[in-house]
Computed example of a mutant assay.
Amino acid sequence: MRVFHLSHTDLDGYGCQFIAKEFFEHIHFYNANYGKEVLVRLNTILDHITHTPESLLASKFGKTPKHKNTSSEKFLILITDLNLTLNEAHHLHQRIEELKISGIDVDILLLDHHISGQECMQKYEWYNLDSSRCASKITFDTLSLQYPMRDSTRKLWIENLSQMINSVDIWLEDGYQFAFGKVAMGVISTSNELNRFMFDEEHRDYKFKLIESMKEFLDTPHGEVHFDNAVYSIKKTALGGNPQTQTMDSITSNIQVHLLSSKKQLCTIFYKDKRGFLSYSMGGISVLANLFLRQNPEYDFYLDVNTKGNVSLRANGNCDVSLMSKELFNGGGHKNASGGKIDGFKESFAYADIKSQVQYILDKNKEER
């Protein structure tokens, strides 16, 4: 079975995914905050299922008596720590029914604890709501009843993890390792060294490494204090650095540049005869952009745009970004460091949408001149 798992972006949300991978070998992860992003991620999951080779085969032949579905692939959409609106639930349910009619074997399992989802729970049997437990504990308890763990020796640790998250997420001050949970919650919420939109998989894996590191401290005397003291070193190691010889700034910049450099084909933009690199919502790019341009001399400029359409431009002597900013983004600054804003910018959760908006501005300005 192939699992597509959508979850929230806090300790409970990532905890659900950390727990789910203990039960499923073939699992694809997605994360969303509330609002428009939820439906975007759901549609991405549905599109991925629709375009798998197994689904295309099933859709082609269907399940008629003459042409039985030759694919035995099963799909599960697992949603945790997110309550859907009625419109979102209806959209998902309808799309799943359409996939089933076309011969694709897909089910939904939603595990949540937010009482605001009660109306959806009453309408859809796949919508499981229990406000007495956090989503991580619901996930562990539910999956434990339905599936074997991939490594049974980890069961006690995973169960304790779910109990700890439960204590802090629904605020049980007398619950199991509540004090530890407060530290853990803060660590996950502030560990954004790898941008979620540019480095989705790496960002999630980084959170998973931090959660895994809790195992050493969780059930020890004053474990929350020792974990709190060790976090900075743990984060450095999780990012691939040496805690004894490298600063966090150096480690973070190096891994970010490495990851960005691996995305050259996707993120390259052009303005006139200049080649640029486009990132989305990285923020604070001065050190990062200059290091990227030094290590990738074929690029003339670096451009970052945030969710509000604010633009930061950096160069390394190969072009005047102050002129670019003035011409394109009603901004200005210095030759190698400038900023501006995109009028009418449309926020998106898909990098391709951001790139098309920026490249359109670059091309339009070039044509007008």
Rank of each mutant, 00 (worst) to 15 (best):
Q17A: 03
E25T: 09
V38H: 09
A32H: 08
V38K: 11
Y34C: 04
C16R: 02
F23M: 09
S7F: 08
A20W: 05
I19D: 00
D10S: 00
I19M: 00
F23D: 09
Y30I: 08
H26T: 15
I27W: 13
D12G: 07
V38L: 01
H28A: 14
L6T: 00
L6W: 04
Y30H: 15
L6I: 10
G15V: 05
G13T: 02
A32W: 05
C16K: 09
E22C: 07
H26D: 10
N33G: 14
I19Q: 03
F18C: 08
E25Y: 12
E25S: 02
G13E: 01
I19G: 00
G15C: 12
D12H: 00
E37A: 06
F29N: 11
Y30N: 05
L6D: 13
F23L: 06
T9N: 14
L11P: 05
K36F: 13
E22K: 07
H8V: 01
Q17T: 08
I27K: 14
T9G: 09
H28Q: 15
K21A: 07
Y34D: 12
E22S: 11
N31D: 08
H26I: 10
I27C: 11
H28E: 15
A32T: 04
A20C: 01
Q17M: 06
D10V: 05
F24D: 10
I19V: 13
F24H: 03
N31F: 10
G35F: 02
L11E: 01
F29T: 14
H28V: 13
S7N: 06
F24C: 10
G15E: 00
C16W: 02
K21Y: 04
Y34N: 06
T9Q: 14
G13Y: 04
G35S: 10
F18P: 02
Y34H: 14
E25W: 12
L6H: 01
G15I: 07
E37T: 13
A20Y: 05
F23A: 08
V38D: 09
G15K: 00
E22Q: 05
G13I: 00
F23E: 08
K36W: 08
C16E: 10
S7D: 01
H28T: 11
I27P: 15
S7P: 07
H26E: 15
H26G: 15
L6P: 07
F24G: 09
D12L: 06
N33T: 11
F29G: 06
K36M: 15
E37H: 07
F18W: 05
V38N: 07
Q17P: 13
N33D: 04
G13L: 03
N33S: 06
E25P: 07
Y14S: 02
F29I: 14
E22W: 11
F18V: 05
H8M: 06
H28M: 08
A20Q: 10
Y30D: 08
F23T: 15
F29V: 12
H8W: 01
F18K: 12
Y30M: 12
Y30G: 07
I27G: 15
H26F: 09
L6N: 06
I19S: 00
D12W: 02
A32F: 02
Y14C: 07
G15R: 00
H8I: 02
I27H: 14
G35V: 13
A20I: 13
E37C: 06
K36G: 14
D12Q: 10
F18M: 06
V38I: 13
C16V: 04
G15H: 04
T9A: 13
T9K: 14
L11A: 01
H8F: 09
Y14W: 12
V38Y: 11
H28N: 14
G13K: 03
K21T: 10
F24E: 08
